[in-house]
């Protein structure tokens, strides 16, 4: 099963819509509750990062019997120092975005905690690719 969603940078009104639609799909597929909760958290944060930090992006979700794979590819400024970006509390979000409660600098660490495998690759000035993988059987990790 595969899905593809487009994300527009700056469109906070729609932030979370992809996560919300995946949550419904995972429920229909009867995926373990604890497993699907983690996937939804990781995807939400990835989706918000495209909205908050990039110009546009595409989210691809691939589900099979074993795992859920999510690729988030964006066109944007990219991340120059990924290690620094991963640190909890580090954020370059604008004060306007922070006032809304985004930009706590916890997004990437939430994604790391809630995925079984996470890979970030980025070309500064071009964009970022975040790959998330979660195994469907909770004991498969």
């Amino acid at each position: 099963m595969q899905f593809r969603h487009k994300i527009a940078g700056g469109d906070f009104a729609k932030a979370g819509n992809v996560a919300s639609s995946l949550k419904k799909v995972l429920r229909q597929l009867n995926i373990d509750h604890t497993v699907s909760k983690r996937i939804v958290i990781a995807l939400y944060e990835g989706e918000v990062n495209v909205v908050a930090h990039a110009y546009s992006g595409v989210i691809e979700v691939e589900i099979d019997e074993e795992k859920v794979k999510i690729n988030i590819t964006d066109k944007g400024p990219g991340i120059i120092d990924i290690e620094k970006a991963m640190k909890e509390g580090y954020s370059t979000a604008t004060s306007q975005v922070r006032e809304m409660g985004f930009g706590a600098g916890m997004g990437l660490s939430n994604m790391k905690k809630n995925s079984d495998l996470m890979k970030i690759s980025s070309v500064p000035g071009e964009g970022t690719i975040v790959e998330l993988l979660n195994y469907i059987r909770p004991d498969a990790r």
């Binding site: 909760k37 958290i41 918000v48 409660g101 706590a104 916890m106 660490s109 939430n110």
Partner: peptide, 20 residues
């Protein structure tokens, strides 16, 4: 009041208190 904090740590069925 931080959305990522709630995403990461609130649990199902809890009441969320915020100024947002």
């Amino acid at each position: 009041d931080l959305l990522s904090d709630v995403m990461g740590y609130a649990k199902e069925g809890e009441i969320w208190i915020t100024l947002q």
